[in-house]
């Protein structure tokens, strides 16, 4: 099982703060979001920052160890 934690605007769109799912890769996670919450939610998740156990993920085929936490954050800029 993998815990998904949603933040910011995406949390409002999916309607939950976190959930547990079965997923082997980041691609599986995106498929779950698309299937469960729709394309808009999936687009938002993909356009934000995805962190696996608090570390930024760089590819959709990254494998997710069991018991991991996948977090969805927004990009920001600043100074």
């Amino acid at each position: 099982m993998v815990k998904l934690v949603y933040h910011g605007e995406l949390r409002h769109v999916v309607g939950v703060a976190e959930e547990d799912i079965d997923a082997d890769t980041i691609k599986d996670v995106f498929r779950h979001i698309s299937d469960t919450y729709g394309k808009e939610a999936c687009g938002m998740a993909k356009s934000g920052l995805v962190a696996l156990n608090e570390k930024r993920v760089t590819g959709v085929s990254v494998r997710i160890p069991a018991g991991s936490v996948v977090g969805f954050y927004s990009f920001c800029s600043g100074g």
Partner: peptide, 13 residues
């Protein structure tokens, strides 16, 4: 939406 404080999450990750 988040101000520059919005950087905390991505900075940590």
């Amino acid at each position: 939406l988040y101000g520059t404080a919005g950087l905390v999450s991505s900075a940590n990750a």
